[in-house]
Computed example of a mutant assay.
Amino acid sequence: MREVDEEIREIKKEIIESRGLIIKTNNLTNALAADIKSIAKRQAGYERRFVWNSWIAYILFASLSFVGLWLATNYRIAEIEGEKERLDADLAEVRRELNEASAQAERRARAETAAAQFYRLIRERRRTEVVERWPELRREQLTRAEGAFFRDTVDRFHLDLSLEAYQHGLDLMRTGRYAEAAEALQEAIRLKEEAAHIPRVKYELARALMRLSRQPEARVLAQQVVDQTIDRELQDDALLLYAAASEDLEDIDQARNALRTFLRRWPRAAEAVSVRRHLADLNRRVMRGQVGARRE
């Protein structure tokens, strides 16, 4: 009986221990379940963060790729536009040079035609037309050789025409046609103002103007002949002409000064005796107050 009680106690004890183990096991199971739930929640959160991070990374990568592609495209577009502008500028420069070359070729062709016509006038010795057309032709695009040849020819024709006009003026002077002679002599001066014969032309023109009662102009020309050094042989005659013009203008002081200068510079000239007499006559007239008297 005692053994049965002990077994019953043992059985109770085992039951109590089993119950404790069951409770512990249940608690551990609950704790494990809670841990599993917590781990599951953390895993779900990690997975959500991973998905979001993946999307963010994808969007960031796509954005960076788009920005990079946009920058590269803009750079290429700018490069192409710059190249296009450079090509446009080169094209405009080429067109400008082409237009200039075309215009230059046209000017040269026009100059060649004008030069050929001008040369024909030279060969035909149509000197007046050559001289008249030269100012227009010289503006054309002539070569250096053409320009030099035509310039020398025109200068020679100027001289020839000036000499012809001078000779024509002398012929008119001999026939008493002083107005026409003055025009011819003025034309001779205009044609070749710095030629060697121009002092003589001016002297003859002064004589013609004296005949036309244009003493002021005659005196100016006579003074120019006196001052020039190209033809010194004319200076004495020009000085006497200056004195005569001054006397006609009743400028007796200038006339006397001119006569004194003549006697001082050419005391042994053929006219010296008559000049001394006339100077003495002028001095007497001045002393008498006859400053308005004119020579016959």
Rank of each mutant, 00 (worst) to 15 (best):
R139T: 05
A179Y: 13
A182T: 08
R211C: 09
E3D: 13
F262H: 13
N283Y: 02
L21R: 13
E124G: 01
V51K: 08
E7T: 06
S213Q: 13
P135H: 00
L159A: 06
Q167M: 14
Y166F: 14
R260E: 06
A238Q: 02
G68F: 08
E164I: 08
L161Q: 05
I15E: 08
L240N: 02
W55H: 13
E47D: 05
E132S: 09
Q104R: 11
S18M: 03
E194R: 02
A188K: 08
E193P: 09
D35W: 09
V291S: 03
L212M: 06
R151Y: 12
L71K: 15
A105Y: 07
E17C: 12
F149D: 11
R200W: 08
R294P: 01
A195D: 09
R76G: 01
E136Y: 00
S274E: 14
A34K: 13
E296C: 03
L32T: 15
A293H: 03
P199F: 00
Q228D: 07
R277N: 14
A57P: 12
D236T: 06
E81Q: 13
F262P: 01
I77Y: 08
A78W: 07
L282N: 06
S18C: 03
R288T: 09
E14D: 02
A105H: 10
Y119V: 05
Q290P: 00
E193I: 12
G147H: 04
D236G: 08
Q141P: 01
P267D: 10
L142I: 10
